[in-house]
Write a protein that binds this DNA or RNA. Structure first.
Lengths: 353, 353
DNA sequence: CCCTATAATGCTCAGATAGAGCATAAATGG
DNA sequence: CCATTTATGCTCTATCTGAGCATTATAGGG
């Protein structure tokens, strides 16, 4: 809806502010690509729709890496960016997207631009979409994969992830120690300090929303495969294995990181968590879903106090019996909360392990 | 920095996911426009850089309305969207932008598309930029204007704005009452409820971050000039005057609304407020700046407790004497707070009127 | 049928935070 | 020296948050 009111710049206006650039632009062929991180929660696992190009002969070019679904935006066929996205996701994946949110637009010409690219320039726009689990079986193309497959260090549901202690921390500390070589004036914050803030080294807090910051730091330190692929080997000689999470094509892991960070932030002030739930659920099922998204586990009693107290849910009157213990009341999302609170969401402060 | 790692889609990949759309896209000429809401705070007034096309003969086409500066993005000349933006702002306006943040990308073909547009399709990307006041005098092109000129209902610094009571509320209530005519299935929330949540009718809370929601509601109700201009007169016969804020060209007022909402949200968890301050300042000057941004006024004692307690500032040791009363200690931004807190910002909850 | 394990649910308590307001200090301008 | 104005220090209370103890209600196995 936010896009409905835009149209092309009239020629006069462009001329008035910057005439000469107009020509340049005309010469370059430009395309828009839409990338979607389509998220669901399946059996308490946060999953994302992945496409592979296994059947392509030139698959080796990217080492057959996983990728997010994407498609070009055709201004002829679609009125808005979002409707374009919905259309090809429906057609290709057979998914009827519910909640859709724009993440970020990226310009072209990343690190590979120097290597003599030809062809059209592409501006890609990343989207986050939330899908109810009920549609998952009907997915026509692509497969669902846990997002922690790509970001194992983000999964704190069983305590601090092993990979942090055994792999990431030592490599980051080594990277931070190398700093004296070439102090980068564009980086006013020291390597160690950034690593500390992102990964909670030495007692600093772990902020579950800083997913993108952590990925970017690992990239910059040359610790993720994509960095090596993009020509960053020079950053340091690190063991190739174990890998720090599964790599993805192009910058798709970066887009996924953005998406995860956005959902994690959003469920705290918007009731988007219910996009990922069935219509009726127990409070503990809701908690498991929130934990799947946020990473850490939550205090059960406080969680229900919070959710009920905020008026986010209401009991249906039914109970679910096969819980393994006392039967649990069933709840549903209470839509009226939208009319009562300015920013309704699951305001949890994931405490600690 | 977030854009550095993207490059064009290789042809194989595009072919593999949706071959046929490729052609369509090729046929349509596509351009990218960058719009910037460049914000500063000048004498306790939040101002935004405005360009006019007074000297154009065809200025009447848009009724000589104010607009945000914009320029096309040339993928040939610039590596990233943001660097493109910085370049033409520097060149045209003579401003060296500090903090820059992407807001939103809009597709083309809004309501005017049906009227037989020709020419290139444009995808426009909105940006928010914060500029220190020290640069303001050197601005080469454009002028600075209070953002409350365009959004008078957002200025709660002297209590609830008169225009809300005298103009907006009655018109919204009338609009809400008309609803029976054509219940819109795409609008599950009733007109009255939306108006109530956005504008705090009948005791509902005023959320200073919902700037865009309020503007969009007014647009939908046909109460802002842009709506009439875009062919929405049918929505209702409203008095033309007084206008609800000054209109802007195209969707620029929408972009500005997005920018205001973003800054208002951001200063609460990032220390961006200091981008708008001189290097040294009194706590009251800081408070005035925060109030300029947020709209409402704040409790003075609690504000200083908050800001000092959060470690956001540190005293310089100097005092400022000509305050009109007791001299005030001077403070500066304490950069170390970035290394201490995961989300440092001015966590004010603007209480009341 | 009783006992045990497992959840669900109810409740309490202490520490931290936020909103308001009172009180005091230190300038400026008669 | 006084009135005015602003800066600054402090207190008090209602709420919220994090943690943990206690009780209730099922299922399953002697």
């Amino acid at each position: 809806m936010a896009e409905a009111n835009v149209r092309r710049f009239p020629r006069e206006a462009q001329t008035s502010f910057r005439p000469e650039v107009r020509m340049e632009t005309d010469k370059a062929s430009l395309e828009i690509g839409l990338n979607a991180a389509i998220v669901a929660v399946l059996d308490n696992e946060p999953v994302v729709l992945i496409v592979r190009e296994d059947d392509e002969k030139n698959a080796q070019s990217m080492g057959q890496q996983d990728g997010l679904p994407f498609g070009p935006f055709s201004p002829v066929a679609h009125r808005t960016l979002e409707s374009g996205l919905r259309a090809w996701v429906a057609e290709q994946a057979g998914l009827d997207l519910g909640y859709v949110e724009q993440l970020y637009s990226f310009g072209d010409r990343g690190r590979h631009a120097e290597l003599g690219d030809v062809g059209p320039h592409v501006v890609s726009i990343g989207y986050l979409a939330l899908s109810g689990a009920h549609q998952i079986d009907e997915t026509k193309q692509g497969s669902w994969r846990s997002w922690y497959h790509y970001f194992p260090w983000e999964d704190w549901r069983k305590g601090r992830p092993e990979i942090l202690t055994s792999e990431i921390e030592p490599r980051l500390r080594k990277w931070a120690a190398e700093t004296s070589a070439a102090p980068n004036p564009n980086r006013p914050i020291a390597r160690y300090d950034r690593a500390k803030m992102c990964f909670g080294l030495d007692g600093a807090a772990w902020d579950e929303e800083k997913v993108l910051d952590r990925y970017e730091l690992l990239y910059e330190a040359g610790l993720v495969d994509e960095a090596r692929r993009d020509g960053r080997e020079a950053a340091g000689q690190w063991p190739q294995f174990p890998r720090l999470g599964a790599p993805m094509r192009f910058d798709h892991r970066r887009i996924l990181a953005t998406a995860i960070g956005r959902v994690r932030a959003k469920i705290k002030y918007r009731p988007v968590i219910f996009e990922l739930m069935p219509p009726e659920f127990t409070l503990f099922e809701l908690q498991r879903t929130v934990e799947a998204i946020l990473g850490p586990h939550l205090h059960k009693q406080n969680f229900r106090r919070l959710v009920e107290g905020a008026g986010l849910v209401e009991p249906t009157g039914e109970v679910k019996t096969r819980t393994g213990g006392r039967p649990a009341k069933l709840y549903r999302f209470r839509k009226e909360v939208l009319l009562e609170r300015p920013a309704p969401g699951v305001r949890v402060k994931p405490g600690r392990v």
